[in-house]
Nucleic acid binder design. Structure first.
Length: 464
RNA sequence: GCUCCCUUCGUCUAGAGGCCCAGGACAUUGCCCUCUCAAGGCAAGUACACGAGUUCGAAUCUCGUAGGGAGCGCCA
């Protein structure tokens, strides 16, 4: 099986509809598609599926592209950069679809349907009540030319339906699910052109993949049962079939496909919280995909390690604690300068260097800024205990010692050790808590140097 | 309702009949290191949904059952 994935270059694509921002699940399929193309030396296409004029917005298209670029997912052909199959926005491909619709109609493979939304709604309802699958009843399929003419004369609008042949077996090999077999009789005639004249997903998505030279379609599991419809269209048109692979969906805590109610699920939200693209990519790389390396992978190394044969069928649960792990790793790998600009507050270099190991998201830095130049929040319970068990005398001694030692922690602790007899954690912890308000944090020695002497003295005295 | 898909530790996964009384990673807990945290090292616990069958032998094959998901839209 693996030989199947090795040899020739594959062309893949990402075909989002610009009706919202880039979702993590979509980002993952885009990423896998890109990886597969890169790994094989092929091409990756971005196509915008904006035939639904009501819901599509230019703003979303731009956001989508910005999010993709933020993640470092660059395309070889797309609406903004063009390419051999331009245009890459389906709203601009109407003429192409029109010639195909005409062919299908002339061949008797598609027919105009005059049913209204209400008709169809009612029909589906009736079928459901009768315990039958809600499929198009075929009302308009066998209309005579006269009947059609009569309806046109009445000014009725029509959509175009694909005439699904009966008792046809549609087979294909899904790269993740293996051999698939569907019976056409289970599929009702479906709309390929809306009454507005625009193409529907089943149609334009399939023919564009074919004509744009896409060799491997990677998409979510939810499209698996749509595939036979698209295959019938392609076959009817005599167009080349791409390979298909349906990856298990990305789901939330509750096992339901990722959506708004699971908290932040859009790329933009993670970006705004300060997650690093390489961290997100490392996480996504292992969701529904078995990596052959456990450790950190730089994005540049990922294509070589992508294994299409190891794509997951089962849904993968998005778990932020794993993302956090990669985020830590990503922060570790940044230079001090990069961290500085990532934190975005113009922090001095010595501060950045000091806190970098205690920060996984930019929000974590604010507490340390307060330690260095600001006011400490009230102590937590365990911190209070540490202060209490050290006792007032300890802090009185500490304040006195500080007047001698200044911000030299070594000197301060040496003096204190002498005067109180304390050592080790018993000595350091109360100092740390008094000085920083927390039991954990960066190196105390440097922290002490960074705060003003007045601040340090005041903090020590406040517990005396 | 009909059709299709899915089911291995808490989570991501390895596993394509014996190498598996199931391996790794994240998370968790403990220990080491250390003023603390992080990092690093070591260690621990926890999983083949269930039931039949095929086989000398099944996480792996077959059939059922249960649970989850998707599609059946003039949404993609």
């Amino acid at each position: 099986m693996s030989a199947l994935f090795d040899s020739s270059p594959v062309t893949t694509r990402f075909a989002p509809s610009p009706t919202g921002s880039l979702h993590l699940g979509n980002a993952r399929t885009a990423f896998f598609s890109l990886l597969w193309a890169r790994r094989s030396g092929g091409r990756f296409i971005l196509r915008i599926e904006d035939t639904d004029v009501e819901r599509s917005q230019l703003r979303f298209r731009d956001e989508l592209m910005a999010d993709l670029r933020w993640l470092g997912l660059d395309w070889d052909e797309g609406p903004d950069i063009g390419g051999p199959s331009a245009p890459y926005s389906q709203a601009e491909r109407g003429e192409f679809y029109a010639t195909l619709f005409a062919r299908l109609e002339a061949d008797g493979r598609a027919y105009p349907c005059y049913c209204t939304a209400e008709d169809l709604e009612l029909s589906r309802k009736l079928q459901r009540m009768a315990g039958k699958p809600p499929r198009y009843a075929g009302t308009c399929r066998y209309l005579t030319d006269e009947q059609r003419a009569e309806r046109e004369a009445r000014g009725l609008k029509s959509s175009l339906r694909f005439a699904v042949p009966s008792d046809q077996i549609i087979e294909f090999v899904d790269v993740v699910h293996g051999p698939q077999r569907f019976v056409s009789s289970d599929i009702g005639d479906f709309i390929i052109r809306r009454d507005s004249g625009t193409s529907s997903f089943f149609f334009c998505n399939a023919v564009d993949d074919s004509v744009m030279g896409v060799t491997q379609v990677l998409r979510g599991d939810d499209h698996l049962t749509n595939t036979p419809r698209q295959l019938m269209v392609l076959d009817a048109l005599g167009m080349r079939r791409p390979g298909y692979g349906h990856v298990g969906l990305l789901v939330g805590e509750d096992g339901a496909p990722l959506s708004k109610r699971h908290g932040s699920t859009s790329a933009l939200e993670f970006r705004e919280r300060g997650f690093l693209p390489a961290a997100v990519l490392n996480h996504l790389f292992r969701l529904g995909h078995a990596s052959d390396v456990d450790g950190w992978l730089s994005p540049a190394d990922m294509p070589a390690h992508f294994r299409p044969g190891h794509l997951g069928r089962a849904p993968a649960r998005f778990d932020e604690s794993q993302l956090m792990h990669w985020q830590k790793a990503a922060v570790e790998r940044m230079s001090a300068g990069q961290i500085g600009s990532w934190l975005g507050c113009g922090d001095p270099a010595d501060f950045v260097e000091l806190v970098r190991h205690n920060v996984v998201l930019p929000a974590d830095a604010v507490a340390w800024r307060a330690v260095v130049r600001g006011d400490l929040p009230p102590l937590g319970e365990s911190e209070q205990r540490i202060v209490a068990s050290a006792g007032r005398e300890f802090f009185a001694a500490a304040a006195a010692a500080f007047d001698q030692s200044g911000q030299d922690l070594n000197l301060l602790t040496a003096l204190l050790k002498e005067r109180t007899g304390r050592k080790g954690a018993d000595l350091f912890m109360p100092l740390r808590v008094a000085l920083t308000g927390q039991a954990h944090g960066p190196e105390l020695k440097i922290l002490l140097k960074l705060m003003s002497p007045e601040t340090a003295r005041r903090r020590l005295k406040s517990h005396a």
